[in-house]
């Protein structure tokens, strides 16, 4: 099996303003990998690089063994079909019901009949705990449900990698925890590699196998490793401060 995500010496920039430089890491199959850092450090930008929405200033991003810099647009489309993304605001299409939202990727990429698509989409919604909500429009459901529906849509095509952008943002602690549990269940049962962008410490310690810490001061990766080990053995002050300050409130 190909490595889901491999990043080598990645430098990200907006114009001449460098956001982060020399990032290198790999995400293994079935691993939950978390991108951590303070606000404005480039977490979301990094995710946009990983899913090919932005091109690197330097270095390479490989998705499922294919370099995004070199692949043709058709190749990239084929790659992205094997990737699911849950966006920060859910990004559900507001003119469609939840069921139709989940059905759309199936319609584009599979040969299933309308009845089968409906059935499969219904199953995906029940997988994220939204059984019975098929006919709701996104404007009629709560924030936590929107995240789940967005996850169901990301899962529609049985992706090999899932990307979550700030899954806990805007959720109450209990809903956020449930989403974390769901994340783990999905990894355990589907074996999907999951890349999460977040700054919620609870979430980091609850789900992450490994984390990369983006240091806004040095514009490099402050540390990569298991969150517990980073907490016990912080490699530098910035990581220590980030992991303990918010953590000490508990």
């Amino acid at each position: 099996m190909e490595t889901p995500v491999a990043v080598e010496n990645l430098t990200m920039a907006y114009g001449e303003t460098v956001v982060m430089r020399d990032l290198s890491f790999c995400v293994s199959p079935g691993e939950i990998f978390v991108i951590v850092g303070g606000s404005g450090c480039g977490k979301s930008t990094l995710m946009r690089h990983l899913i090919g929405l932005q091109s690197p200033k330097a270095g390479t991003v490989k998705l499922l063994g294919e370099s995004l810099n070199e692949a043709s647009p058709e190749k990239i489309n084929a790659l992205l079909r094997r990737v699911g993304v849950m966006y920060q605001g859910g990004a559900l299409w507001s003119s469609m019901t939840l069921l139709e939202n989940v059905m759309l990727p199936l319609e584009e990429y599979t040969d299933l009949s309308a009845k089968e698509r409906r059935e499969l989409a219904r199953y995906k919604l029940s997988l994220v705990g939204l059984a019975g909500t098929e006919d709701y429009y996104p404007s009629e459901i709560s924030g936590g449900m929107i995240k789940r529906a967005s996850l169901a849509r990301a899962l529609a095509l049985d992706p090999e990698i899932l990307f979550f952008d700030e899954p806990g943002a805007g959720l109450d602690p209990l809903s956020a925890k449930r989403l974390d549990d769901l994340t783990k269940s999905i990894r355990d049962s589907l074996g999907t590699a999951i890349v999460i962008v977040t700054h919620e410490l609870d979430s980091i310690f609850a789900v992450a196998d490994r984390a990369i810490f983006l240091d806004i001061a040095t514009k490099t990766a402050g540390a990569i490793g298991k969150p517990r080990e980073l907490l016990e053995n912080p490699p530098n002050a910035a990581v220590y401060e980030f992991l303990t300050r918010a953590g000490s409130k508990k």
Partner: peptide
């Protein structure tokens, strides 16, 4: 592996269907 997914899909809240 299958059992886990089956559990995930069949347990949890069942929402009341939208009234249209």
């Amino acid at each position: 592996r299958v059992l886990k997914l089956y559990d995930l899909a069949t347990t949890g809240t069942r929402y009341v269907a939208a009234e249209r």
